[in-house]
Design a protein around this nucleic acid. Structure first.
Lengths: 338, 338
DNA sequence: CCGGTGTATGTTATCCATAACATGTGTTAC
DNA sequence: GTAACACATGTTATGGATAACATACACCGG
């Protein structure tokens, strides 16, 4: 009970020096004799002193902390992205705070408020919705932002992402090339740029083939397995069943895959299936699906690097947009329509 | 550029009051007239003022933040546990910081250091290894701890978990009851209490049946799919193949499941399979496995409640150990040996 | 009319560290 | 011999908020 947390003053007294000298030892700044340093270090360890970063940050105006605000920590795409950001952050000796918004704008606002209050030095943001408002808010508060994975309209901000429109276009072209004409697209919320861009790329490819289907083959839902399941059911129930399913992300694909199996259809014999984002190899399904792979790790690391470039002032004043290349990986879930 | 972040002083000046009055408005404490409150609130919103929680916490000696340190954020068992903790935290108007140690003691130490520096008010800890050291360290620094899911030896600390030994015992009894005699156990790292307890429960059940197998049927690995895959391969390659596989957690089960399929065996015809922790329903495998289910959400919420009880002083001075009940859910992955 | 109580606001000290500046050695250079 | 400089340490001001205390007025009861 009642353990007393010691302060820099206690350490100074114990070591017989001023607090400033202790501070120098802690920060390895300025001059300290070997002898003094040793005494101070002994005092620190004797007292079990842990510096108070609140006080430290208050004075130094830097928390050495950045935040990564994303929409779904459980998605392997994002966990990989996190590792990329983490590695860069720890290389810069920064802490990374993870905030999971669950695709909710309200939660996002709440987290950004807390982050501003905690005075994080910068934010990596995967926006829950396609609005520039949160970005400009952070910027007005003097917090550098890098927008990751998704677009926000008309914001003057650093950004790292892949070209979802182009990716969806290429994937759709690939399916068309196999001979598919009825291709269903299962996508995310209409308000999310990646969901919309993938629709646009899909449409562009279809239009090029003069396939102007109505929108019955496009299903909007959430980036979640249960939603993928429902959307797949929905398009499989259409009078004229599609010959190919294009899931706009890995979780939608996972759910859709179950729906297809539950419907007694086999892949790719009865139906081709492709997806955006690779599927988690470890989890029960072996990697067999034809996918558009995005370099998630690199997205995280490049975004973090951009942020640290801003933080250190080593960045060009103009904002940078980094578009990373995607890769179409053909596996055995896709083939010519029967 | 150069946006100026405003302080409570700026707000006070703008509203023509003292900083103390602004503080009262912010914290809804003390007396403030309706008229003044309105002026202050206008000033706050005009300036886009965001209170500095560093300064606030420094003075008030409370960060209104607790941390949940766990070993694998990607595991649905833990994400569910997180939600339990989150809900309770937000009900108490506290922030929850998530720290992912990846089962590494080094990472755990690093995170705890940062948390102490940031002066979190409390910690929920899923210990990476069975050592009481990190717990006593936190306690000596005056930070209340609740140990979750896993045991640490001889520590005087609040704890919430399930009885892994008993769960494994019951599951093994169940398999023995079906007629299985060669039951392989795929478990986690030897240094983790849940991994070890599950071995102990398994052994107890076997001993009761006078089945004193050597340890060739016990494989130690990591709580991860790739490890489950390898361990399954290992026991499937034994001269006398086991008739049942018992995975000590869901991720091991997911990997083992793939190994079984890759070996061309079918479940439960050729081999029964059971697991500790339910499998993620959403991810490609439908829930079909016989499991010991732990109340993950409740573990998180109860642990958080215990922590807040301590924080508010409303807790009995003696430490509490909460052992939550588990449930054996029989599904179609297990049957009598062929 | 006086003291007690509730309301409304302000002043000062403080939280714990670091920035900025000051001071005092000893050594080197010319 | 002394200016210049590296080295070593200390003193004071400061960051942005709240705790603790102080002040002042209004209203009420006796």
């Amino acid at each position: 009970m009642g353990y007393v947390v010691s302060t820099i003053r206690d350490v100074a007294k114990q070591a017989g020096v001023s607090t400033m000298t202790v501070s120098r030892v802690l920060n390895n700044s300025g001059y300290v004799s070997a002898d003094t340093r040793e005494r101070v270090e002994k005092a620190i360890s004797d007292l079990g002193y842990v510096p108070n970063s609140l006080a430290r940050s208050l004075r130094s105006k830097s928390t050495r902390t950045v935040a990564l605000v994303l929409t779904d920590v459980t998605n392997p795409f994002f966990t990989t992205l996190v590792r990329g950001a983490e590695d860069v952050a720890s290389r810069h000796d920064f802490n990374l705070i993870l905030c999971n918004t669950d695709e909710s704008e309200a939660k996002q606002t709440q987290y950004l408020t807390v982050l501003l209050q905690k005075r994080v030095d910068g934010v990596l943001l995967v926006p829950a919705r396609s609005t520039s408002e949160p970005v400009t808010w952070l910027q007005r508060q003097g917090v550098p932002v890098v927008v990751v994975d998704r677009r926000v309209p008309s914001a003057d901000v650093d950004a790292v992402r892949c070209d979802s429109e182009q990716g969806a276009y290429e994937m759709t072209r690939y399916l068309l090339g196999l001979g598919h004409r009825r291709i269903a697209l299962l996508t995310g919320p209409a308000g999310v740029s990646t969901a919309q861009d993938r629709v646009n790329g899909y449409r562009r490819a279809l239009h090029e083939c003069s396939l102007n289907e109505g929108d019955e083959l496009i299903a909007y839902g959430e980036f979640a397995p249960h939603s993928g399941y429902r959307m797949a059911q929905q398009v499989l129930d259409l009078p004229e069943r599609p010959t190919a399913l294009f899931a706009a992300n890995n979780f939608i694909a996972a759910g859709a895959y179950r729906a297809v199996r539950d419907a007694g259809l086999s892949i790719p014999a009865d139906l081709s299936m492709v997806a955006f984002d690779d599927l988690p190899a470890g989890l029960a399904v072996e990697p067999f699906m034809t996918v558009i792979e995005q370099p998630a790790y690199e997205m995280g690391s490049r975004a973090a690097e951009l942020l640290f470039a801003r933080l250190s002032g080593r960045a060009p004043s103009a904002c940078q947009e980094v578009i990373l290349p995607i890769r179409l990986i053909v596996r055995c879930s896709s083939g010519a329509p029967s």
